[in-house]
Nucleic acid binder design. Structure first.
Length: 852
RNA sequence: GGAUCUUUAGCUCAGUUGGCUAGAGCGCACGAUUCACAUUCGUGAGGUCGCUGGUUCGAAUCCAGCAAGAUCCACCA
């Protein structure tokens, strides 16, 4: 295939990906001697589309994977898809609603298989998008979060927890969404600042004495009064000391409840007396535990008042009941005022309904032993974090973690393998025959628990499950995710990984921040500022997207997405394409181009070898430190500003074909992790390369003469200075270049003339014209006197500036503390500069006097 | 209430144990142009590194305080 004039990514990307896949290039090495390198992809939602955060994750993970593969390691990037229990369920339930159906029209098994089919239909989109991003993941290891091996592993871990008595059935307050009819973990509840009212309500004393007839409580939820089982006051509160352990008549009921002393009551809030409703408030639940209070449920799972709320209220919604209770209290003269307050209220993160804390029998995991072990591993630095501050945040979180509710009342998930004795509700057994609604055991009938696991319980075991087929790849090398997953996911993987395998699940954690829009605003559907990675890829190419999204980004920081960086990436791909086209062209034109003997004959060749070697070492070092943006920036600079702008330009004269070929190969390999498609496409199109680029080895060093390389740097300065003068001199005209005793210029007359487009470059014994301000070189521009005079101001300016530079150096060097304390090489460098600049200043002053 | 992060050029951001003239991309200005590339080439302008102190021979970098913005956690009867 011929190289077209411009690189058109869409034309090559799908074929190149297919080539890798059909060549089995993504599989981990079969050589047992190679070191394992493993990354597990955070599984995207099976029925969703990839968003920009996935784009960043996959770009970073694939850079690491490809880089380590090129290092000769057994790189294994494991893809997956998430059944996304609740997320998917919400989508499916909407479809049911639209069809006029509800979840109650079907059995759990029917629902499960319907959703399964739904997800299978949707699936595939996501996988195509992962391919479009260039992920070099091993599709033969693809794991879906409901695959049998996932369920098996989850059941083994659950059984172990069961036998270790770390899982228990408990009636506790759970965060319940009455619309979605399911409980949530604490972490899934979204707290929002809502406006509400704080009402003061009088509770009459059962036996008024000493003129005290009532106690006034403050509440935002008067309807829960019907479930009160105590009133609490602070034991230190002088207003209420005398009332402790007296009884009050609970209004609107015929119950009497005690006044108790508990530190939960805040003397500064409201009236300082608080009603205790253990079945509908988490704090009150704890108070009840301390004081052995009964629990009365007055709100049901349907969000309506229960029979226990009394005949007047039964069947009303929470808000209806609130109105009625307030009215009834007012009629009794017990409502003593209200004020508006702003307080935070838990909402369902999908439907925004207010989360009701409700009593429910659920499975809980005792997290303390698991969390303590995780904390110990973190404190021993067994897992390294980037950024490091995330580790401290995680330790803090684990120290305060409460028992974990793992039951969910949605059909789309892994069934909890537990059965309840039909005659003894306290008798639960572990059994994995979850396809049966009931089982018989020891002459009893056991009924299946219809709940499913919290998805974090199964995904918390993801590194274990995905590496089962290659145990040497566990622990995995690095877990890369967004910062938002630190608590829900990373924490679970560490706890469950340590618990189930006695080993950490990964050695490093790299967390990226949020990808914000171009104005540094959070992307959201409602704002309409969502950037779709697939649109960026189709406009600019996958490589450009990868380079653009990792640019200017460091670990853990929220940063804006900038299309201009994508464009820069696209331009780099095109530049590399044309570099390759040019070299291929030169190879084609030369019949003796077959030599593979690499030699350096010209300074620019030593210089580029040195630059490429430096680049290779530095990129390796930077990727090792997860400094992706700096690595890609260095490659950009090396390829464009060094290789193309200087080396390739010199090669238009010198044409060292073996070196051109070799250096191009090195560049392609080094850029491959960042821009896999264009580099592989070029590799496939070059006439002399064989095999796949993805499977090459990272380049070894190119030998070069450092003296020669540093001479070339002087040449660069000379040429740049000449160009600058040609631009800035009056008339912007090019003038003949003269030089005195100067072997460097003498040896490179042709090159200097070519790169500056000067009319001539000649040696002279009679210098004249404008002297260039370059230390250690005697170079002049042969400028007519008239122009030179016009240019006098310019010369004076440069003399002034040079003088200021010398002053700075002199000041520094006259400081005895600097001489004594600064490192020797810095002092020497300063001294050298000072003397060079001083001698140059002398010469320029002389020339100025000549003009005058 | 607790914690973390951010503040550097017009914009978006780099800048790892403090080291000399603070960088990049894009944008801007000026110039170039038959043959690798206009997704190009060359040159240039643009910054008292949020503010105030401190440590140091030397601070964008370390310390303290302040200001602004963001995120997370907990709590809010």
């Amino acid at each position: 295939m011929k190289f077209s004039k411009a690189y058109e990514p869409n034309q090559y990307e799908p074929d190149i990906y297919a080539l890798w896949e059909s060549s089995n290039a993504f599989a981990p090495s079969s050589d047992p001697a190679s070191d394992p390198y493993t990354i597990v992809m955070p599984p995207p939602n099976a029925n969703g589309n990839l968003h920009i955060g996935h784009g960043l994750t996959i770009a970073l993970e694939d850079i690491l994977t490809r880089f380590h593969r090129l290092q000769g390691e057994s790189a294994w990037y494991i893809p997956g898809a998430d059944h996304a229990g609740f997320e998917t369920w919400v989508v499916y339930e909407k479809l049911l609603e639209r069809a006029g159906k509800s979840r109650f029209d079907y059995t759990r098994d029917e629902l499960y298989s319907q959703v399964w089919d739904f997800v299978q239909e949707q699936r595939g989109n996501m996988e195509l998008q992962v391919r479009a991003l260039g992920a070099s993941c091993d599709w033969s290891s693809f794991t879906f979060t409901l695959d049998p091996k996932v369920i098996d592993t989850v059941y083994v871990t659950f059984q172990k927890l069961w036998e270790d008595q770390l899982v228990y059935r408990g009636e506790k307050l759970v965060n319940f969404c009455v619309k979605h009819q399911t409980a949530f973990a604490d972490i899934e509840v979204v707290h929002k600042e809502d406006k509400g009212k704080l009402w003061d309500i009088a509770y009459p004393l059962a036996n008024p004495a000493n003129g005290i007839t009532e106690v006034i409580i403050s509440t935002t939820r008067p309807e829960t009064l019907l479930g009160d089982t105590a009133v609490a006051v602070n034991p230190e509160d002088p207003r209420y000391k005398k009332m402790i352990s007296k009884k009050v008549k609970l209004p609107l009921t015929d119950r009497e409840i005690p006044i108790i002393a508990d530190a939960h009551a805040d003397t500064t809030f409201g009236t300082g007396a608080v009603k205790i409703t253990p079945a509908h408030d988490p704090n009150d639940f704890e108070v009840a535990g301390r004081h052995n209070l009964p629990l009365i449920t007055v709100i049901g799972f349907d969000g309506k008042m229960t029979a226990e709320a009394g005949a007047n209220y039964e069947g009303l919604t929470v808000l209806e009941a609130r109105k009625k209770v307030l009215k009834d209290l007012e009629n009794l003269g017990l409502l003593r005022g209200d004020k508006t307050i702003v307080h935070s209220v838990g909402h369902c993160y999908k439907c925004d309904s207010v989360i009701e804390p409700l009593l429910k029998d659920q499975w809980f995991i005792k997290v303390r032993p698991l969390a303590d072990r995780a904390i110990a591993a973190l404190e021993a630095d067994e897992i390294k974090f980037k950024p490091a501050s995330k580790k401290q945040a995680l330790i803090h979180y684990l120290k305060n973690l409460k028992d974990w509710n793992i039951s969910r009342q949605i059909p789309w998930g892994i069934p909890i393998p537990a059965f309840q004795n039909s005659t003894d509700p306290t008798d639960w057994i572990f059994d994995t025959r979850v396809d049966l609604p009931e089982i018989a055991k020891a002459s009893h009938t056991y009924i299946r628990d219809n709940d499913t696991f919290d998805t974090w319980f199964s995904s918390g075991q993801w590194p274990i499950i995905t590496t089962l087929s290659r145990p040497s790849h566990y622990p995995t090398s690095v877990m890369e995710t967004g910062s938002d997953l630190l608590f829900p996911w990373i924490s679970r993987m560490i706890m469950l990984g340590l618990y189930a395998t006695n080993d950490i699940p990964f050695k490093d954690v790299y967390m990226h921040g949020m990808v914000l829009d171009e104005k540094a605003q959070k992307m959201s559907k409602s704002k309409g500022n969502v950037i779709n990675p697939m649109e960026i890829i189709s406009a600019y190419g996958s490589d450009a997207f990868r380079i653009g999204i990792i640019a200017s980004r460091s670990a853990g920081v929220n940063q804006a997405f900038s299309v201009s960086k994508v464009i820069a990436g696209r331009n780099l791909c095109n530049k590399l394409w044309n570099i390759s086209r040019f070299i291929q062209h030169m190879v084609d034109e030369n019949s003796d181009a077959s030599s593979t003997n690499i030699t350096t004959e010209h300074m620019g060749e030593d210089w580029i070898c040195q630059e490429l070697t430096h680049c290779s070492k530095k990129v390796k070092d930077l990727i090792g430190k997860y400094r992706f943006a700096e690595a890609s920036e260095l490659l950009y600079d090396t390829i464009w500003n060094k290789y193309a702008d200087w080396f390739l330009e010199t090669q238009k004269i010198y044409k060292n074909l073996p070196l051109l070929r070799k250096t191009l190969e090195h560049i392609l390999i080094m850029l491959h992790p960042f821009a896999p498609f264009v580099t592989e496409t070029i590799w496939q199109n070059l006439s002399w390369t064989t095999g796949l680029l993805i499977s090459q080895k990272w380049p070894s060093e190119l030998t070069s003469d450092p003296m020669s390389a540093s001479q070339f740097e002087s040449l660069i300065i000379i040429i740049s200075t000449l160009r600058a003068h040609f631009q800035s001199l009056p008339g912007a005209k090019r003038y003949p270049v003269l030089f005195g005793q100067d072997s460097l210029v003498d040896d490179h007359q042709l090159l200097i003339q070519f790169l500056t487009k000067a009319p001539s470059v000649t040696s002279t014994d009679l210098p004249k014209g404008l002297r260039l301000a370059i230390p250690n070189h005697e170079i002049y521009l042969d400028i007519p006197e008239k122009v030179l005079n016009e240019h006098q101001k310019n010369l004076e300016d440069r003399i002034m500036e040079l003088g200021r530079e010398i002053d700075t150096l002199t000041l520094r060097l006259s400081n005895p503390n600097y001489l004594a304390k600064a490192p020797q090489h810095l002092v020497e460098e300063s001294q050298k500069q000072q003397s060079e600049k001083e001698s140059l200043l002398e010469k320029m002053k002389q020339e100025l006097s000549l003009i005058k």
